[in-house]
């Protein structure tokens, strides 16, 4: 799976995901993971959020936010495991797990956002 035909594509996904993650993820986690639970800002009501998520633009936004960063993760974490733990011999297993997570997340996001 890791060869000269696939590696440019995985690296492109890694880069695109890196940009998306860098720009969008900190504010998402800050709002929903920290600010709202600590009541630094008020919680948007359930119907208001639902209405927001029903907009096609939001759905595309959320889909991109859930898929590309996972491919970024898959590429980077795979190399972290190779280099950090020196487990290059487990190449195939690591590869399957990392990209398995990315594909699973992407499919889940696509399914949830299309069928709601």
């Amino acid at each position: 799976m890791v060869n000269k035909e696939t590696e440019p594509i995985f690296w492109s996904l890694f880069s695109a995901g890196g940009v998306v993650a860098g720009l969008f993820l900190p504010i998402e986690l800050l709002i929903f993971g920290i600010a709202i639970p600590l009541e630094w800002m008020h919680q948007p009501s359930y119907p208001a959020l639902l209405a927001l998520v029903h907009s096609p633009i939001t759905r595309i936004y959320l889909f991109v936010l859930c898929s590309l960063p996972l491919f970024h993760f898959a590429h980077r974490f795979r190399y972290t495991l190779y280099d950090g733990l020196q487990i290059k011999h487990l190449n195939e297993v690591v590869f399957a797990c990392c990209y398995g997570i990315a594909i699973l997340g992407t499919v889940t996001a696509g399914y949830l956002l299309l069928t709601m």
Partner: peptide, 13 residues
């Protein structure tokens, strides 16, 4: 070089 390689690889793909 990687950016050049990625553009090259995507073109071929």
């Amino acid at each position: 070089y990687k950016i050049a390689g990625a553009i090259d690889g995507l073109k071929q793909f």
